[in-house]
Design a protein around this nucleic acid. Sequence first.
RNA 1: CCAGAGGUGGCGGAGUGGCCAAUCGCAAUAGACUGUAAAUCUAUCGGGGCAACCCUACGGGGGUUCGAAUCCCUCCCUCUGGACCA
Length: 359
Amino acid sequence: MTTDEKIELIREVGEEIIGEDQLKELLESGEELIAYDGFEPSGQIHIAQGILRAINVNKMTKAGIKFRMWVADWHAMANNKMGGDLDKIQTVGKYFIEVWRASGMDLSRVEFLWASDMAKNSDYWKLVVQVGKANALKRFVRTAEMMGREESLENLTGAHIIYSCMQVADIFMLGAKITQLGLDQRKVNMLAREVGPQLGYWKPVVVSHHMLLGLGKPTTETQDKTKRTIELKMSKSHPDSAIFMTDSLEDIKRKIGKAWAPEGVVTENPVLEYCKYLLFEAYDTIQIERPDKFGGSVSYSTYEDLERDYASKALHPMDLKNTVTVLLDQLLQPVRKHFEEDDEAKKLLEKVKSYQVTR
RNA sequence: CCAGAGGUGGCGGAGUGGCCAAUCGCAAUAGACUGUAAAUCUAUCGGGGCAACCCUACGGGGGUUCGAAUCCCUCCCUCUGGACCA
């Protein structure tokens, strides 16, 4: 694969890429490149973290990059996930890994690493402190959105500041020349680009992937594009805004059924978006079954065609929803199967479901 | 450490001895209306029972009282200001 082909593939992953020139150099240098994404284990895992993550990882590894999945258990503790109970968090972490294993991710070039293992290394904490010293408190406060928190002192604890410092240190300790996280993580990544060279490390290339829309009606007034995507993203704390990797067909039916989908409107339409980012990634054509009185079945082989018909109202939301429900269900089938057939996985899922989610 | 304010249901926020399972708003759920959703209207909205009623609840624990979310004691936590800082 040529460098340009690789870049093309990475562009598919990155809604925003900071340092593309540098990325090219890195790809041409022949060095073993590492990209990472980190996750706070908390509650259920949704399709953005499951299916979309698998799609993106596969593209990155296909481009010759090694991927590290960072199970950020200490970060979750700092951010008070699962009531700040590290045991619970780690159980959820194991559950996440089980999901990824079953989600169609090509694992040959993927590694799962735990923050709690890194925490045993004093070099790590040395770097955390160095990162902390490199900037004013305010700067760390401004990264709060990556923890799903407001950027104000009232809602943060001391632990959140440590979190920010840790996340920057993670990048360098993991050897990640590329950070491949969600768009909501861009501020810390920018901080890392700034701090890296100061501390004798590198400027990581930031490949930020798209954040899938939540299923509800967009309510925010925010105009700032990044902020808006973060506010509208699929979120575990809003129960029915997200489809989880182990949801049943009934769950999916209910959630997609309730999903925001104004007829003819193409912008900020979650149902259409799932077609674009998930379904057309998995299927070559999408066949929509509908009663003859509404035009009979149609099939689309590109998202653009489907979008055009939707925009012109030739395709009704309800027909689309029915199809999306079935296809999403199909995508989740292997995951669900894994959790039904594998005893260990089954136990994990039950445990996780019994935990109460805290924000 | 001191002083002031405060901790109420998923969230916001009333209530300051009985009429409080707790006004109201948001969210949620159901129904009506649209070939989906939204908007709008209606109902429900701690758990159990058809019901009278019972249980569990207003940061934790203890107490006063016939009776406490409401009064007292104590502990924990948050906010604001201040003190301390060899």
